Computed example of a mutant assay.
Amino acid sequence: MSDTALPRIILASTSPYRRELLQRLHLPFETISPQVDEAPFAGEQPRNLARRLARAKALAVAEQHPDAVVIGSDQVADLHGKPLGKPMQHDRAVAQLRAMRGQTVVFHTAVAVVCLARQHTEVDVSQVNVTFRDIDTGMSDAEIEAYLRLEQPYDCAGSAKSEGLGIALLARIQNDDPTALIGLPMIKTCSMLRAAGVSLLTGARA
Rank of each mutant, 00 (worst) to 15 (best):
Ala39Asp: 10
Asp37Gln: 07
Val61Glu: 04
Gly72Pro: 12
Ala58Gln: 07
Gln127Asp: 10
Glu44Phe: 08
Glu20Trp: 00
Pro185His: 05
Glu38Gln: 04
Leu21Lys: 05
Gly203Glu: 01
Asn175Trp: 13
Val125Lys: 03
Ala39Thr: 15
Arg47Asp: 13
Arg205Ser: 14
His26Ala: 15
Gly81Phe: 01
Asp155Lys: 07
Gly164Phe: 02
Ser199Glu: 10
Pro87Gly: 04
Ala180Val: 08
Arg19Ile: 06
Leu27Val: 04
Gly203Met: 04
Ile32Glu: 11
Leu11Asp: 03
Arg101Asp: 08
Gln64Ser: 14
Leu170Asn: 00
Met139Gly: 11
Gly164Asn: 02
Asp155His: 10
Lys82Asn: 14
Ile71Met: 08
Thr189Phe: 07
Gly166Met: 03
Ala62Ile: 04
Leu21Tyr: 02
Val114Cys: 14
His90Gln: 06
Gly158Met: 03
Leu21Thr: 08
Leu49Ala: 06
Ala93Asp: 05
Arg19Val: 10
Arg205Asp: 11
Gln119Asp: 15
Val114Leu: 10
Ala160Thr: 09
Asp67Thr: 14
Glu122Cys: 12
Ser2Arg: 12
Tyr17Gly: 05
Arg172Leu: 14
His120Asn: 10
Gly85Ala: 03
Ile173Leu: 09
Gly72Asn: 03
Ala58Thr: 08
Thr109Glu: 07
Glu145Pro: 01
Tyr147Gln: 06
Leu49Phe: 00
Val113Thr: 10
Gly183Ala: 06
Ser73Gln: 01
Val61Phe: 01
Pro66Arg: 03
Lys86Asp: 00
Leu200Gly: 10
Thr109Ala: 08
Thr202His: 12
Gln103Pro: 08
Leu49Glu: 07
Thr121Asp: 09
Leu184Lys: 01
Tyr154Asp: 10
Arg149Asp: 14
Asp74Cys: 04
Pro185Thr: 12
Met139Gln: 05
Ile173Ser: 05
Leu59Cys: 09
Arg92Lys: 14
Met88Val: 11
Ser13Cys: 11
Leu181Arg: 02
Glu143Phe: 02
Asp141Ala: 04
Leu97His: 00
Leu79Lys: 07
Ala56Lys: 09
Gly85Arg: 00
Ala117Pro: 04
Ser199Lys: 09
Val198Phe: 09
Pro46Ile: 01
Arg194Thr: 14
Gln96Ser: 01
Leu165Cys: 07
Cys115His: 06
His90Thr: 09
Thr189Cys: 13
Ala180Lys: 08
Ala195Pro: 00
Cys115Tyr: 05
Pro66Glu: 07
Asn175Ser: 15
Val113Trp: 07
Pro185Asn: 05
Ala58Pro: 09
Glu38Ser: 04
Ile167Gly: 02
Tyr147Pro: 08
Leu59Ile: 11
Ile32His: 06
Glu63Met: 07
Glu122Arg: 14
Arg172Met: 11
Ser162Leu: 03
Ala196Ser: 06
Leu148Met: 08
Leu169Thr: 11
Leu170Asp: 06
Lys82Phe: 12
Arg18Leu: 05
Phe107Asp: 08
Pro40Ser: 10
Pro28Lys: 11
Ala206Thr: 14
Leu193Pro: 02
Arg92Cys: 10
Ser33Tyr: 00
Leu201Arg: 08
Ala99Lys: 00
Arg8Cys: 03
Cys190Tyr: 00
Ala60Ile: 10
Val111Cys: 14
Pro87Cys: 00
Asn48His: 13
Arg101Leu: 10
Val70Met: 09
Arg133Val: 07
Leu193Gly: 02
Ala206Asp: 14
Glu145Val: 03
Ser191Leu: 13
Thr109Met: 06
